[in-house]
């Protein structure tokens, strides 16, 4: 359990996928206008990440090295399509909102990096743990960003009004606003990282 937390900490700060490695930004920016769409996207990406880790770590020895990227692409795209069908079936209202953006997960670097860096080199247990941690990291980031964007932009949280309508900053809802919020979060994580590093050096 202790190693799990230390691993999570490492994933959250030193190797934060969206904020330090800057992968998976496309779905992150697209689906973070409202908290609920952020939650749906987090669920979709998490399931795709974990299942792709399972499948790829299982078949990694069967796939020749020179076509591995293509094969991973097909596997990831299949899992994304399954996720899309599931969302269409069980969350139709969110499918209307997010539908055309779900397939973009297939091209998101976060899944692909995970598949090629971890799942193709490790056994199933290690890859699933690592994939889960990446999924948790991504979910935390997208939930934070979408929370801030919805609160600042529309003044609501899950469609409950929090701030008077006239104080809403519609800039936060635009793409630029999303990038600015993301940048601020990245700065915070970077600061924490540098503090940690200097502490380590001091010891």
């Amino acid at each position: 359990m202790k190693t799990f937390f230390s691993l999570l900490q490492k994933k959250l700060f030193a190797e934060n996928a969206p904020l330090v490695m800057l992968v998976g930004l496309c779905p992150l920016l697209i689906a973070s206008k409202t908290l609920i769409s952020g939650l749906v996207m987090a669920a979709a990406i998490s399931s795709v990440l974990i299942f792709s880790c399972v499948v790829i770590s299982l078949v990694r020895k069967l796939i020749p090295d020179n076509v591995r990227l293509v094969a991973y692409m097909i596997i990831i795209a299949t899992l994304v399509s399954v996720a899309e069908i599931m969302i269409r079936a069980y969350l139709p209202t969110h499918y209307v909102n997010l539908g055309i953006y779900i397939p973009i997960i297939a091209s998101a670097g976060i899944v692909f990096a995970q598949a090629d860096n971890v799942a193709s080199k490790n056994g199933i247990v290690v890859s699933v743990i690592d994939g889960t941690l990446t999924a948790i990291t991504f979910s935390i980031v997208i939930i934070t960003v979408s929370f801030l964007r919805e609160l600042l932009g529309s003044g609501t949280i899950l469609s409950h009004r929090m701030i008077e309508e006239e104080y809403g900053m519609s800039f936060a809802l635009s793409g630029g606003g999303g990038l600015v919020i993301l940048g601020m979060l990245a700065a915070v994580v970077k600061k924490i990282n540098s503090i940690k590093k200097s502490k380590k050096e001091g010891e």
Binding site: P64, V70, I74, I85
Partner: peptide, 22 residues
Amino acid sequence: IYSVLTLFIVAIVSAALLSGVN
């Protein structure tokens, strides 16, 4: 040949899975 076959099998399995789920 081995690579092509692997890719072919991967694609077939994926397509079957997708159509089943759909």
